[in-house]
Design a binder for these strands. Structure first.
Lengths: 213, 213
DNA sequence: ATGCAAACTGAACGTTCGGTCAGCCGGTAT
DNA sequence: ATACCGGCTGACCGAACGTTCAGTTTGCAT
């Protein structure tokens, strides 16, 4: 489409901007700081990008396309929906933890209100998020129609559970060190399988389940 | 303790600052904008607060204490842990949706890196978050010891699921309008009960559960 | 060698930022 | 009346901001 043929110099700027924007947000990062990090002059940034806003959009666009690319290779098309959900959860949480910069940018774009930045920026992250979210929703619906997942499970609520948990896991790993006397599962794969176990089978003991009938 | 007797003028400033900081973040909001919104002069803000950083800390401190106060009235001490979890989920999600400003501030403080703002600020939100998180964790452990919740359920992972889902629900309600042909559950209480149903019983059909044995 | 466009820069622009200061109010104790 | 003090303000400051521009360097086609 409209790939504006990123030069090597522009790429240095993009990389530096990505890191800084992901870590501190749009408003906290000055163009001078980006220039410093990229080891170019401030004016050079304006040679490649027409404004700070447009640079941010470019960073976000790159992050979103990288994000989409990484999650596309999911597939695994088998007819066991428990496996498919498990696979989705694992690859999603690994995507978040392996690419914290990209993920932080997308999440930041999602959670920030419409703000001052022009609308295309917001639509970008929203679309990227919807993409993952909707793929999970359709996966659940398919599982329901195959009779493997409960009909009364609201697909969007389930997707919110899984994706919300993964995001919190990724963002709060550093903050949650001090859970009392029970170590937090720091390994993403461990977390994903623990989470999937809960989501598939619930947390009630069998005895409690029986009492309900 | 050290309640610095907030005057009515200072309260106007705090209210305006809370709203703006919650909506746009620390760096995006200028002291002049806060003064405009509070209908006071910029110098007046510096009469009540010694710097923008300190004002932000004050706003965050107020938000955290309001948050703690609101969730403390949970209790309900009954011996049915399914009910207790359900009650926790409902009051938590209602707290988030009813007080979006306070919640946004705490979440923002949590998700932002150590940043430039002095450390007490970060500790503040982290403590508030830990408070909720740990209360949920101990609730789950109690349920496990009572034999009502599965022993292999990792308490911290469960807490991450529930709290992460609630946060995403609250923050993404406006973004998630377009889930295809299945309306998103916009009512917080509906969402909480749907979520709890999944967490307690899992999403696998009974027939699928039997196949695993 | 010459030309030319693109990559790049130092220095400056006007604006906005966080923060300061001298001074004006209105009440209140002397 | 006077002194005083907290609440409050307009005018101002230096620094940092995003942005521009004239001009230099680089690389490549001729």
């Amino acid at each position: 489409m409209d790939t504006p043929e990123i030069s090597s110099g522009a790429q240095k700027v993009l990389d530096a901007a990505q890191e800084l924007f992901a870590e501190e947000g749009f408003a906290s990062v000055s163009v001078a700081a980006i220039a410093d990090k990229a080891q170019v002059s401030k004016a050079n940034i304006y040679h490649h990008f027409e404004s700070k806003d447009k640079l941010y959009s470019a960073v976000l666009k790159a992050a979103c396309s990288a994000s989409a690319e990484m999650i596309t290779m999911n597939a695994g098309q088998n007819d066991n929906y428990a496996d498919q959900l498990s696979h989705f959860a694992k690859s999603h949480v690994l995507h978040l933890t392996d690419n914290p910069l990209i993920s932080s940018l997308v999440i930041r774009g999602l959670l920030e209100e419409s703000s001052n930045i022009d609308s295309p920026t917001n639509d970008l992250t929203a679309n990227d998020f919807d993409c993952n979210f909707n793929r999970l929703v359709t996966l659940i619906k398919a599982g329901q129609e195959a009779g493997q997942l409960k009909k009364q499970c609201h697909p969007a609520a389930f997707a919110t559970l899984m994706i919300g948990a993964n995001i919190l896991f990724m963002k709060a790993r550093n903050v949650l060190g001090e859970v009392p006397d029970n170590e937090y599962p720091l390994d993403p794969e461990d977390f994903a399988s623990t989470m999937i176990d809960i989501l598939l089978h619930g947390v009630l003991t069998d005895q409690q389940e029986d009492n309900l009938l």
